[in-house]
Design a protein around this nucleic acid. Sequence first.
DNA 1: AACTGATGAAAAATGTTACTTTAAAACAGC
DNA 2: GCTGTTTTAAAGTAACATTTTTCATCAGTT
Lengths: 339, 339
Amino acid sequence: MKNVTLKQLAKKLGLSVSTVSRALTDSYEINVETKKRVKALARELNYQPNPFAAFLRKHVSKTIALIIPEISNNFFSQVIKGVETVCQEKDFYVLIYETHEDYQKEVRIINHLIGGRVDGVLISVSSDSDNPDHLKQLLDRNVKLVMYDRVIEDFEASKVYSNDYESTFNGVSHLIDRGCKRILFLKAGENLSTMNQRERAYFDVLEKNGIEADYSLVKSFVPSREVDLDDLTAFILEKKPDAIFCSIERLAIACYDICNKLGVNIPNDIKIITFSCLNVARLLKPSLSTITQPAFEIGKTAAQLLLDEIEGKNEQHEFVNLSLPSTIIKRDSTKRYLG
Amino acid sequence: MKNVTLKQLAKKLGLSVSTVSRALTDSYEINVETKKRVKALARELNYQPNPFAAFLRKHVSKTIALIIPEISNNFFSQVIKGVETVCQEKDFYVLIYETHEDYQKEVRIINHLIGGRVDGVLISVSSDSDNPDHLKQLLDRNVKLVMYDRVIEDFEASKVYSNDYESTFNGVSHLIDRGCKRILFLKAGENLSTMNQRERAYFDVLEKNGIEADYSLVKSFVPSREVDLDDLTAFILEKKPDAIFCSIERLAIACYDICNKLGVNIPNDIKIITFSCLNVARLLKPSLSTITQPAFEIGKTAAQLLLDEIEGKNEQHEFVNLSLPSTIIKRDSTKRYLG
DNA sequence: AACTGATGAAAAATGTTACTTTAAAACAGC
DNA sequence: GCTGTTTTAAAGTAACATTTTTCATCAGTT
């Protein structure tokens, strides 16, 4: 082992290991001169304490796990950024895991984490996650947990998400304001908290506007799979909608492709609005109306809450439910007529 | 501590700790019946070996660090995905670090890693990284290193990148084929291997086509900062180019915004091509011609190389230099005329 | 009785930290 | 000036959970 250890430092300095250790942590019991000597040598040899050994003593790893359904997704990559920002500031380490929307994989990951690898876990549950037993086990072993975006509603933990109900309500209302009556609702995933909120809002808006609910206008997609374009094309041709509400960005992109192929004009023939964190939405043809979630803030806030819990600032287990507002940006894809 | 340990298992089973340990690792020295009993209890209590204690003995953490200049960037998030894919398969853990293009931060991160937290490091160096001493220290302490995308050319390590020279050569040639003569070259970062390759290719194409090099048509941007739109607008208005070659996606987006604002038509007035992993490039107005790097493959390949080295498959230190081909996709933004 | 071979127990080691102890010096009280 | 106490500085040691090496036991065989 080529790594510098306390032992080596102690030997070179003619001191004991414990003295060196405490000199480095600025213990009051050590002579000022000795401290200086120790620190000077530590700096010279670029001594870095071994984190694994330190953990074994202290049972604190200063590491959290960030569990993500799909990494290369604008929403989640901004979440990562938010989490990173907070953690780097507080000298915490972030382990990233991707579930690929697979519940089995999620369980396996959590089991790994049970070994005590991390102090806390940030999770957005996978789309077919119906049973939270594995998460309970984490808590049993004193690993802190915060859920973000996709949460399990009756689970005892802090949660950070966006106002899916309200923003969907506004989004669908916007379509109706523009004269749409036959609005497709494309959802992704069956058991997701976010999707349920969005679907509820969709039907509520219809009811409020005296439009009869047609459940056949709702189509569900498997988030982990590619969008089946032929299938979606057939669906659109069959239903002949005047608008499409997409609950994820990928579906909107598929709709754009399909409309281009079919020669259907957006927004004159069909209007489209979608949940999306795409930063070039304004440059699309036509520019895409979006409901943009505060991804970066969600990441930051969730990480903040988790670190607070780890640092024992929430002894009473007062779990927080935080809803951060999305922004609805109306662009050409939902314009009344585009000349 | 609520965690299940070998000690607890041993106590419950009436065996010694070492016997339990060896039963779980399927040592030939342990009676088959004993093994069964041990494994049954381990499964029942969901025993997970403490990774920190295991490390301390074995000096293998099965963890690598992935150092990234900017996480929320299509290219890098696909790299993450590639790395994740390989590592999950081989049961390795990935720690993510973001440098925000800051050399000081990069040095700090590497110093942290020197403590032995990881078995290996995957790095794309930050844009103002001129001195690789910190990386040498890693190698001194037996931490493996592989560079991806942005590499330091004369550093003793395996490297994975894309064929920046050739693809830029093809990209600029494409612009010239379309009749462009006054091509801006927008670069990002001064000391980056990638940028140097691209710039060299740009000038080589000009020379090959008998166009006199005009160094004032090259403009450099600081990758960590927002693009200064006013500044870029002024530059474009001053230089009156018939094409712009963007070395990063963000610059192309800025150009689109500027052209829209100025009422300049792409591609009739100015043609634009860019390095980009944007998956909606085809849906922009006009659709954007791109040079798309194989980000996912770069991540996969680099991770593969690193894990091989960690697992001792490269005892002779035969470092690999791998160049993966980018794809140039010609779309409307470089069309001859768009009616 | 000595020797195998199988089985499992004990002990050592990893690098750090926290608790306990020791040694010496400084100081107070008689 | 000596003894007893306090203070200061440093050393020693145990513990963390695991793995690995060494050691011990016992049954069975020569």
